[in-house]
């Protein structure tokens, strides 16, 4: 398997927000290096600042203290050079464009010639070849997320950022898309950050799973996932998989009570 992409370094990163007169710490002193071509998931109770970590890597927020670097560059420069790919829980496809035009969008924004062949390949890969002329409104939730992931991948980014992309889908569709994502990712391992609520999803897809505490988010556990790649769905039936899932769930439960009202 080919390892692609760039490493991500979170150097003592903290982030606090001011709400009115109060200052709320969302992320506290997170120190972590994600290797080039590594798939890392962040799980934690809701409101623990896992999305904030992703938003700082995406240059959507600036850390209050510490630094985020991708390769040797700050995230904002990576964004300016069109080297980041992103998919959110909200598919954020443009409703007035067809699926194909939506996937083309990153080419247009980067002012590069549209590579139709590449789009065909990618649409094929995410199973949307026959729907390339459809508008997002005409697609199911799962298909929209596929299109959104295709848009994130089309420029072959150095870093792929996934913020609960399957969070709004039903269990069956979600599992299905997990398997597809793992297949797509295995072809060309891009450095990836996945934010998720699902322990199974994190285990199945990741090289490492990072568990965050309740607010403010701190790293409480980093679990390397021992399964080789490419992974088949049968991994999910492995007793070890269940044991790791139980461990992760347990380390999460310790913080459920600490969630602020």
């Amino acid at each position: 398997m080919q390892r692609a992409g760039t490493s991500i370094r979170l150097n003592h990163v903290s982030k606090s927000f001011s709400i009115g007169r109060k200052t709320v710490a969302a992320v506290d002193a997170v120190d972590l290096t994600i290797e080039a071509g590594e798939f890392v998931s962040f799980i934690g109770p809701s409101g623990c600042g896992k999305s904030t970590i992703l938003r700082m890597v995406a240059a959507l927020e600036a850390p209050t203290a510490g630094q985020v670097t991708i390769g040797d560059l700050p995230p904002s420069e990576m964004a300016q050079h069109h080297r980041l790919g992103v998919a959110f829980q909200d598919h954020a496809l443009l409703p007035w464009l067809t699926v194909r035009k939506n996937v083309e969008l990153p080419f247009r924004i980067a002012s590069r010639p549209v590579n139709d062949q590449q789009i065909d390949q990618l649409l094929n890969l995410v199973g949307l070849s026959e729907f390339d002329r459809a508008r997002p409104k005409q697609l199911s939730g799962g298909m929209r997320q596929r299109a959104s992931i295709a848009r994130a991948l089309i420029l072959q980014p150095d870093v792929l950022l996934l913020d609960e992309p399957f969070g709004a889908l039903d269990q069956v569709t979600r599992r299905h898309l997990n398997i597809e994502l793992q297949n797509i990712w295995a072809r060309n391992a891009i450095t990836t950050i996945l934010i998720t609520h699902s322990v199974d999803e994190a285990l199945f897809l990741s090289d490492r799973v990072v568990v965050l505490s309740g607010r403010p988010g701190r790293v409480v556990k980093v679990l390397p996932v021992p399964f080789g790649r490419p992974r088949s769905p049968s991994v999910m039936r492995d007793p070890l998989f269940h044991q790791l899932a139980d461990d992760l769930t347990e380390s999460l439960e310790g913080y459920v009570g600490s969630e602020e009202p």
Partner: peptide, 17 residues
């Protein structure tokens, strides 16, 4: 929507784009 704006920012779109 904020999600749309976020996607454009991450993709490195200029203000005009």
């Amino acid at each position: 929507t904020p999600a749309h704006r976020d996607v454009f920012r991450v993709l490195g779109a200029s203000k005009t784009q």
